[in-house]
């Protein structure tokens, strides 16, 4: 007699299982984290040696340098997050299972946010040393987290679209970077104000823009994600 089937987990259960899987796969392969870190560190060092930065100039340039390194390094993580699933057919395995595609999207977003945070644990202290800046502030930490969510929210859904395309490596940055303009502007401005140790009330509007962007893209993308992965 065929054993009785158990019921599949709910949305949160699916998210938890898929997020754990993302972390386990990345931890084993280190396919993304290492190239990201190498790229970001190299970019920071290149910037540091390219400009003769002193005093006030440092505060003006450092936020842009930091976010350029983060955003370009994130392209590596975002590009791989779906490409390797498509190459190996594991995405079809997940989509053939009784999961809600939205849970898969959120698990990927969470994993990408975590990857960016790990990257920042390396490059923020390095930026502080190279540019002789005080970067360990709560407002900056908040900006980094919110910026990461924005990058991952848009980047993950666009990566799912690009993953089945032939020129996916070129397609992802072309689609992603214009959409990230609000994140780049807000994050750079908030970071600059945090470095200048301005009051939180001055930083808050930029964090508000980031928060609204994050909420809009995470919600919308989770709802329409199934359209981007279905064939």
């Amino acid at each position: 007699m065929q054993p009785q089937q158990a019921s599949p987990p709910g949305y949160l259960g699916q998210f938890r299982i898929l997020f754990s899987k993302e972390i386990a796969v990345e931890f084993r392969s280190r396919e993304t984290a290492v190239p990201m870190a190498v790229f970001a560190v190299a970019a920071l060092i290149a910037f540091q040696f390219s400009f003769d930065l002193r005093g006030g100039t440092l505060n003006l340039v450092a936020p842009g340098v930091l976010w350029v390194a983060i955003i370009f390094a994130s392209l590596l993580a975002l590009g791989r997050s779906f490409a390797r699933e498509v190459e190996r057919g594991s995405l079809d395995g997940l989509l053939a299972s009784p999961i809600d595609p939205g849970a898969l999207y959120l698990a990927k977003v969470a994993a990408n946010v975590l990857m960016l945070l790990v990257l920042e644990i390396v490059i923020v202290p390095l930026t502080a040393v190279l540019f002789n800046l005080q970067l360990f502030q709560p407002a900056l930490l908040l900006t980094l987290v919110m910026g990461n969510i924005g990058i991952a929210a848009v980047g993950t859904i666009l990566a799912s679209i690009a993953a089945r395309a032939r020129a996916r490596e070129a397609l992802l940055p072309i689609m992603l970077l214009p959409l990230l303009v609000p994140v780049i502007i807000s994050a750079v401005r908030a970071t600059g104000l945090a470095i200048d140790e301005r009051p939180f009330s001055e930083i808050q509007p930029w964090l508000g823009v980031l928060g609204a962007y994050d909420l809009a893209f995470v919600t919308l993308s989770a709802l329409i994600f199934y359209v981007t992965v279905e064939r």
Binding site: Q5, S7, P8, K21, A24, V25, R28, S29, R88, G89, S90, D92, G93, A96, S97, P98
Partner: peptide
């Protein structure tokens, strides 16, 4: 939830 599939690709995570 009631379907089991085996296709050309393994659907497995190599790591």
């Amino acid at each position: 939830a009631q379907i089991g599939t085996l296709s050309h690709q393994s659907h497995l995570y190599e790591e």
